[in-house]
Amino acid sequence: MTRIVKRGSPMSKTFLSKAFILGAGLTLAACTSPDRFGSDSAVDLNNSAGSVAGSVSDPTSPAYFEQAVGDRVLFPVDQHTLTNAAQSTLDAQAEWLLTNSDYDALIEGHADEQGTREYNLALGARRANSVHEYLVSRGVPASRLRVVSYGKERPLESCSTESCYVQNRRAVTIISIGAGV
């Protein structure tokens, strides 16, 4: 049985997904990390740098889910309600999950570093749960979904300004085949 290797951590996230998010019209102030991505990061959609399996040109692939559908939604400070942009992304996620019914999903909730460890863990859980509830409301069986909160433990961007915080306040949907949840 094929098993998609889950990414080790959000840090292994490639430039591609960010490029896509920007392209998708979410207004993000990207916190660029030139040392990480280099100034010449050519966007090669067929090379996702070991991030997730498959080609983004294959609509049934995890790479497509991550980059074309969009695997994450962002939240305002201390909020867990879904913005219109987030709902659009989740509509697409739900559609993809309903089409590709072999996949299960783990929804990770995250917070930025402004807040205590405990509160942020609880806040990340609220965010992940918002995504969970929305996907279920769009017909994805709850049995295919699990949620986890990382609080502020796994920031995607490391700077201590809003340009990074906005990207860290997120819920990420990570798909895997037959996770057996």
Partner: peptide
């Protein structure tokens, strides 16, 4: 301790 169930702590 705190327990999270259904997003609520």
């Amino acid at each position: 301790y705190s327990l999270i169930r259904g997003g609520n702590t």
